[in-house]
Amino acid sequence: MTTIKLRWAEGADQSLPPPAYETTGAAGADLRANLPGGAVTLAPGARALISTGLIMAIPQGFEVQVRPRSGLALKHGLTVINSPGTIDSDYRGVVGVILGNTAAEAFTVEHGMRIAQMIVAPVVQAGFDLAERLDETARGAGGFGSTGAA
């Protein structure tokens, strides 16, 4: 098991629980809004950076991906704008979640609310070589929709 070390940012409400897996088979651990100054209301079409109050030490060779919670997306149109957001192993700032409201009604993000889920994933860094020619494939340069899939 990989361990992510956490600490609270200055001014964060330390009484909130840390990220947690809600079921034994969950791939994502829930992140909570840490808004000791009060709730944030997102108008339709609006977006905001919502603090988790957490600073993470992610081991080298891993990343944390931040993704929407499906229930909030389905019921309220709330999503993570840059999904999946990536937190790199060398980042040591406060983790924030960029939430967007795609619904026709305003949505209020309350302090302590589960707002996103985080996935811990391995990272492979590649080398890059410029070449005069690349190998040919059956698909070639066919782009969006070129395979006939809708």
Rank of each mutant, 00 (worst) to 15 (best):
A131T: 12
V120K: 07
K75Q: 12
S83L: 09
A149S: 12
T23F: 09
A106K: 09
P17Y: 02
I87L: 15
A20P: 00
L72Y: 15
V97W: 03
L16W: 00
P19E: 01
A131W: 02
H76A: 15
A121S: 15
A29N: 00
M118G: 15
D13P: 06
A39S: 15
T108F: 11
P36I: 10
A116E: 08
I119A: 11
Y21G: 11
V109T: 07
S15A: 14
A116N: 12
T147R: 04
A48S: 15
E63N: 08
R139Y: 02
G143E: 04
A57W: 00
H76R: 14
L35Q: 02
A126H: 07
F107S: 10
V123M: 14
A149D: 12
L99A: 09
M56A: 12
D135R: 03
Q60N: 07
G85V: 05
L130R: 08
P19M: 01
P18R: 04
A12L: 00
E110M: 15
L74S: 11
Q60E: 13
P19V: 02
L72M: 13
D88I: 01
R7W: 00
L54F: 00
P84G: 07
I115T: 06
N82V: 09
A121D: 06
S51Y: 00
I98T: 10
R32A: 13
Q60P: 13
V94G: 12
I4H: 00
E10V: 11
L35M: 01
T41N: 10
V95G: 01
L72E: 13
S146E: 01
P68D: 08
A149Y: 10
H111I: 13
D129R: 07
P18H: 04
G38C: 11
N101G: 14
G142W: 01
L6I: 04
A39N: 15
V95S: 04
H76C: 15
A57C: 01
A141S: 15
T86F: 03
P19A: 03
T79K: 09
S146C: 06
S83C: 15
V64G: 01
T3K: 11
L134H: 06
A104S: 15
G45A: 07
D88E: 11
M1Y: 05
V66M: 03
A150Q: 12
G38W: 05
G112N: 04
A141E: 14
G61W: 03
D129Y: 00
I98M: 13
R114M: 07
A48K: 11
A33C: 06
R114L: 08
